[in-house]
Simulated scan of single mutants.
Amino acid sequence: MTQPHQQSTASTVPTPKELREQVEQNRHELGQTVEALADRADVKTRARAKATEVKEQAVVKAGELKAKATGVAQQVRRSGSTCPDRVAAQGRSKPVCCGNWATASTRRTGLT
């Protein structure tokens, strides 16, 4: 069998300086890869970060809902009607607690 003849030329053989630069570049890339893998493997830290993110979202949503509920409560107070009156006017079979009626109920039962 014959093997292909390889010619060595000065331009294809890296110099020691080029080899050192390649080694340093490979070390740098390997270090980044190891850091990325370590971050992915750190489940506890990832869980904490996710919990913090969800908590912040919940706080924002709670603020939005509170503002909305306050607005609805003010509208009910301004209307001057009580909940049973509104339920009867809307023809609902199941009463919905709201506004003055719910407040009166809680005062009677001591749930304030």
Rank of each mutant, 00 (worst) to 15 (best):
S93E: 11
T52F: 09
K66V: 05
S93R: 05
C97E: 00
K17D: 09
A51F: 07
G31N: 05
T52L: 11
N26C: 08
V87S: 10
K44N: 00
G63A: 02
V13I: 13
T112Q: 08
Q57A: 15
S11M: 10
R92P: 02
K68D: 01
V60D: 13
R77T: 05
E18Q: 11
T12A: 13
G31D: 02
S93T: 10
E29L: 01
S81T: 00
D39K: 15
K61A: 09
D39V: 08
R78G: 01
S79D: 07
V72F: 08
G110F: 05
A10E: 09
C97M: 00
P4S: 13
R40M: 06
L65W: 10
A38D: 05
K17E: 14
A88F: 04
Q25F: 06
A62L: 03
L19W: 06
D42Y: 08
S11I: 04
T12F: 04
K68V: 00
D85G: 03
K17M: 07
S81G: 09
R108I: 13
E53G: 11
G71L: 07
N26E: 12
T112V: 06
T2H: 06
C97W: 07
A89L: 08
G63R: 03
E53V: 03
L37G: 08
D85L: 04
L65T: 07
R78E: 09
R27W: 01
K44M: 03
V59N: 07
T106R: 14
D85H: 05
A67P: 14
L65D: 13
A89W: 00
E29R: 01
T15Q: 05
P95W: 01
Q90A: 13
W101N: 12
T45M: 12
K94H: 03
Q3Y: 10
R46N: 02
S79E: 02
K17W: 01
E56K: 15
S79Q: 05
K50S: 05
T109L: 08
E24I: 11
A10N: 13
E56Q: 15
A38I: 05
